[in-house]
Simulated assay, not measured.
Amino acid sequence: MEAGVDAKIRRGRLLREILKQGERLAPLSPEQQLAWLVAYHERVFDALAGAAVQERLARLLH
């Protein structure tokens, strides 16, 4: 049971990292946010953490 809780906490942290808005005056479009949430749901980012998540997200935008 404990491992399941840890996994849920890691996924929650990952979701928070994905939804961070780097620049306040240049928010992401709803389409970009939705694409990231779909990728999150499909577990595309599960092997990443911290800065690696932001790097992957930045590459997806370009």
Rank of each mutant, 00 (worst) to 15 (best):
L15F: 14
F45M: 08
L34G: 04
R43M: 14
F45S: 01
D46F: 11
R13Q: 06
D6Y: 15
I9W: 05
R59N: 12
I9E: 13
L60C: 13
P30D: 03
A26L: 12
L19S: 09
R59E: 11
E23I: 08
E2T: 09
L61G: 13
L15Q: 12
A39T: 05
E31G: 01
V44Y: 00
M1L: 14
L60S: 15
L25M: 13
V53W: 03
R56D: 07
A26D: 14
L28N: 04
A49C: 03
S29C: 09
R43C: 15
Q21W: 07
A51Q: 04
W36G: 09
S29F: 04
E42R: 14
I9Y: 12
R10P: 07
D46L: 10
K8T: 00
R43I: 14
L28G: 04
V44T: 05
Q21V: 01
R59P: 02
L61R: 15
L57E: 09
L14Q: 02
R13G: 05
P30N: 02
A35K: 14
Q54A: 13
L28S: 03
E17T: 05
G50K: 00
L19M: 12
K20H: 05
D46Q: 07
R16I: 15
I9V: 15
D6S: 15
L37H: 12
L48M: 03
A49G: 03
R56P: 01
A3I: 06
G50L: 07
V38I: 08
L28M: 07
A49Y: 02
Q54D: 13
D46E: 14
A7N: 07
W36C: 12
M1E: 13
G22T: 10
L37R: 13
L15P: 11
M1V: 01
L34P: 08
I9T: 09
A39D: 13
R13F: 09
G50W: 06
A7V: 05
V53K: 04
L61D: 12
A52W: 01
L34D: 03
R16V: 13
K20M: 02
D6N: 15
G50P: 09
G50M: 05
H62C: 00
L19Q: 14
A47H: 06
A26F: 12
V44C: 09
G12A: 08
Q33H: 00
D46H: 06
E23W: 04
G12P: 01
E17Q: 11
P30E: 05
Q54I: 10
P27E: 06
G50Q: 00
P30K: 04
P27F: 00
R24S: 11
E42S: 11
V5H: 10
L25V: 13
H62K: 09
D46G: 08
L34E: 11
K20Q: 07
G12C: 02
